[in-house]
Nucleic acid binder design. Structure first.
Lengths: 227, 227
DNA sequence: ATATTTAGTGGTGCGATGCAACTAACCGTG
DNA sequence: CACGGTTAGTTGCATCGCACCACTAAATAT
């Protein structure tokens, strides 16, 4: 196979990035509260439709696709994101009507408070998605699956909470993601011994009842997984 | 940001796939025995250097990047591969001297017997890699990490063994990948109850000593992971 | 004071896992 | 042909982690 002719006859491939920006609404008691940040497309194709924030990779300004994803988020959301991770790459001739396309998809996590800036009508529940442009529903499905999966063995979900949070909030979050209520005692023991949170000395969240100790995330931890 | 001008002024991005084809040599007692199938490049850049099997995505014939990876493997190895999984996508302006490139990287697993077809001098130990073209050493590192990781919670490693194998061989393999010797009793109990292998009735592997029952893989299984 | 609600801690029984001893089957050797 | 060596495969036990449940603590409301 000749490399030169291979390169010369190569048709154009569209190279884009898409970001699944996830957050969680701990107030909503029904469902898991997971929400995804969308945009409304202002150009063809799918003009006027809802879609994931995304766009072309700009070789002259992007250092790599992760940088492109950051740039997209910054222009569409006006801020740097808390956590960003590459999810997977989707490709094919028919997923974009403009031609054969490759989309490197990223998952971003943000807490609900910060996401207040995002227009409320563009924050869709992931368990009741509106019609979306391209194959974006698939990308969201993959992102949510990844997040749920990582919840079972990592500290990743802390990025869905504000800087400080109570252990009850953290437990509630894990319970939602894992789809099963967790035991208070076991959860606290686990979290403590894994040491991915630390107390904020003297900081308490007071409500109607007994005040709760506030915590903050320490380092990112991935737990052991044994066969 | 105007989509049309965005698209029109878009410089060419090289879109390629690379495959990290892994196998394991259970004979080699030192190290873990993991090996990666390489090719020797017959064209610039890096002409004559060792590299991963890979190549351009061909939009007119490839249904997606996974199909491109299969095609690359078929042309370079002459056969379909046992297991193929997308690893990650690597990108940037400097990883390929020809220009800004995106490489969708795949991990492939094959058993040692089948890999006998691969030229022996192109089957490198992953813990002692020769100098490689592009950033391919990085891709191999990521692939090996992924494999080791999945060994701790999935049946994935069975794809590194022939169709039938003994439980001792399977245990040896897991022990190598996990980097720690496993207990015979516990391992067998686990494998049995997870049920991802089944006996081949009446088939035994006879050596100098007591013959061992042969097993074959059932369905692909991923185990539970709990926080 | 007392009820209510949420925060947070301790104890206990069961199941999974690790460890070690045991049996089984084959081969080679004197 | 008995015996030792080696690998296959099982069984029993002891221990550790974890789910479950009961308890105490601190606030508010009436």
């Amino acid at each position: 196979m000749n490399m030169k002719s291979d390169s010369a006859m190569r048709p154009k491939i569209l190279v884009t990035v898409d970001v699944v920006l996830l957050t969680v609404d701990l107030e909503s008691s029904l469902s898991d509260g997971l929400r995804v940040g969308l945009i409304r497309r202002d150009a063809a194709p799918y003009k006027g439709a809802l879609a994931l924030p995304g766009g072309y990779v700009h070789p002259e300004e992007d250092e790599n696709t992760a940088a492109a994803a950051c740039r997209v988020l910054k222009t569409k959301a006006g801020k740097a994101v808390r956590y960003l991770e590459q999810l997977a790459t989707f490709s094919g001739p028919s997923r974009d009507p403009r031609g054969w396309s490759v989309s490197v998809c990223y998952v971003a996590l943000e807490d609900r408070e910060t996401m207040k800036q995002w227009p409320a009508d563009l924050l869709a529940r992931v368990d009741a998605l509106p019609p979306l442009a391209f194959d974006h529903a698939t990308l969201i499905g993959a992102a949510v699956e990844r997040l749920r999966n990582k919840a079972s063995y990592s500290a990743l979900p802390v990025f869905l909470l504000p800087d400080t949070f109570t252990l009850s909030e953290l437990q509630d979050l894990y319970g939602r993601l894992l789809g099963t209520p967790l035991d208070k005692s076991s959860f606290r023991r686990k979290v403590r011994e894994l040491g991915f949170v630390e107390e904020v000395p003297g900081a308490f969240k007071g409500g109607q009842n007994r005040p709760a100790q506030l915590y903050r995330a320490k380092e990112m931890t991935t737990f052991d997984r044994t066969i």
